[in-house]
Computed example of a mutant assay.
Amino acid sequence: MENYSIPTEFILLGITRFLFGIFLLIYLSILIGNGLIIVITKVDPNLQTPMYFFLGNFSFLEICYTSVTLPRMLINIWTENRTISFLACAIQLGFLLILGAPECLLLGVMAYDRYVAICKPLYYPLIMNHKVCIKLAVGSWTIGIPIQILQTYQVFSLPFYGSNKLNHIFCDLRPLLKVACGDTFANELSIYAVAMVFGMLPFLLILWSYIKIISTILKLPSTEGRYKAFSTCSSHVIVVGLFFGSIIITYLQPKSKGTDKILALFYTIITPMFNPLIYSLRNKDVITEKDFIFISYFKT
């Protein structure tokens, strides 16, 4: 113990200078795109439905989620300083985990909303009333906070007497455990357990919802009806595939691989960037309202 010192900061090896312009454009597109969806779902009376209520929540969550990592990355790249303090790293990881859980849960809630709308249309206003939507949104945002705070505390309770170099673009669980000293088996087990609760369970709910949705759609008599039903779900399916695909590979694989940084970009940056684009291109209501906002802006 006398030959080692406790690190006061970590060095992020995954950050390179040429990424500044790319990350800046991505961050601006995330803020503008998701911000537009929030405004659209609030100002248009025709979009005051549970589907757009959850979409607005999801877009706001995407802005918060990316703001945990991207601004810090931009500052580090611009100043050519790859270091992040021990406390800042703990705060970043904590918020990353706290905001990651509701992202999975909201996607599950959105799938359930589509299931009720398509499979139980007559009961939809009763089941997905305003109070239920508020409870589902609040529950999605808050249910994982105590668990994720505890997981963050467990990680930073480990001794870090060895290397302080993180082979990553931000403070994440796997890179931190890799440089931690002592037995990290309990922490690895905790990662799998939390990933199962907040990742796999919502994913299974989504899978079950879409199995029911597809079986109901195939029973519709008209081709136009089947197409319309599929089109209301396609955007959500694409976002789910991008987000859960990268999350499952990252956190449920047995050992950390060299692809962790690329996969981390998918669930922290790429999915939030494509979210407004996917929903806008696949939804005529959003396209119409977005065009109206742009026309009104330029007229003024």
Rank of each mutant, 00 (worst) to 15 (best):
S256D: 03
Y227V: 11
I295W: 01
I248C: 06
I143S: 15
L47Y: 02
F243P: 01
P272S: 09
T216N: 01
I143F: 14
F170I: 00
L136I: 14
L74T: 13
K131I: 08
M1L: 07
T49C: 02
K212I: 00
N283L: 11
F10I: 06
G225N: 09
I75R: 04
S215E: 13
K228P: 00
V132A: 08
T79F: 05
L107M: 14
S209D: 02
A137H: 05
I84C: 11
I169D: 04
S222F: 04
M51D: 11
N81H: 06
L122K: 02
M73W: 14
I75Y: 12
T8F: 05
F230T: 02
Y124N: 12
L242T: 05
P146S: 04
M128W: 12
L24N: 03
D183K: 01
Q92I: 07
F170K: 05
M1Q: 08
L19R: 15
R226Y: 12
F58T: 11
R174C: 05
D172M: 13
F23R: 12
S5E: 15
F203W: 13
D260N: 03
Y153V: 11
L252R: 03
I15K: 05
P254G: 03
I213Q: 02
G33Y: 05
M51E: 08
L87S: 04
I287P: 00
S246D: 00
P125I: 06
Q253N: 06
Y161I: 14
K212F: 04
T79L: 10
L189Y: 07
R226G: 09
T79W: 01
T8G: 15
S215I: 03
V197I: 14
I118W: 09
D183V: 09
T79A: 09
